[in-house]
């Protein structure tokens, strides 16, 4: 494992911890899109179908369990916890799941490396992860007050994807036959979706003002 991959995974882990901190400690999910969180739960459920059948490493198995467990517990918190659900901004989180899930499923059925259930589900999870942040970005744009933890959560998620791209570039030059077009293109699209957010995030950081996305 190279440093970019490790840094990417740690950034991903940090994003989850920041979100759990906000939800578990502050008992608030203000500004957090339940739609995006449900899509992530679906992403990990469909990607890690092989968690108990294809062993890669102890590290991988533990990380998979963390991402699965945290994704589903975050959804549980927002839907069921009596304090947390009160802070959920339902009226602004209006993105429809099937606008995202259905095209990803169709695309996975059409474009994949191998037509088996496992591989199609794995490909579906890649396409879905690429666009799962959209409901969250839409919600941020509609939220006048983006709190620090929410801003950091989205920033860490974007940073994780950018680091994975560096990891692929590194692996391409250091490993023989390392070519994964489907992963790379969906990962690149996923990272580009954050470009706008990154711009305003750095602007607010540089000028020391509160983060706000223009409508």
């Amino acid at each position: 494992m190279n440093i970019f991959r490790l840094a990417g995974d740690m950034t991903h882990l940090a994003s989850v911890l920041v979100l759990l901190l906000k939800i578990h400690t502050i008992k608030s999910c203000a500004g957090i899109s339940l739609k995006t969180q449900e899509l992530y739960a679906l992403v990990f459920a469909s990607r890690y179908l092989d968690i108990f059948t294809h062993y890669v490493s102890f590290y991988n198995t533990v990380m998979k369990l963390i991402f699965l467990g945290s994704a589903f517990s975050i959804v549980w918190y927002i839907r069921r916890h009596k304090l947390v659900r009160r802070s959920y901004d339902k009226d602004h989180d209006t993105f429809r799941h099937y606008f995202i899930v259905l095209p990803c499923l169709i695309l996975a059925l059409l474009i994949h490396e191998k037509f088996t259930f496992r591989v199609v589900m794995w490909t579906f999870s890649l396409y879905l992860e690429a666009v799962a942040i959209l409901p969250q970005l839409v919600l941020l744009q509609r939220t006048r007050n983006i709190d620090n933890l929410t801003g950091q959560y989205v920033f860490l998620l974007g940073a994780y994807r950018a680091l994975y791209i560096l990891n692929w570039v590194y692996r391409y030059f250091t490993e023989p036959h390392y070519v994964h077009w489907i992963t790379w293109i969906s990962g690149l699209i996923q990272t580009l979706l954050y470009a706008d957010f990154f711009y305003y995030y750095f602007q607010s950081w540089k000028n020391n003002v509160k983060l706000e996305l223009p409508a």
Partner: peptide, 10 residues
């Protein structure tokens, strides 16, 4: 190419 099943990334 390695099989996608053997993919070692998260």
């Amino acid at each position: 190419n390695p099989e996608p099943e053997a993919h070692d990334e998260l």
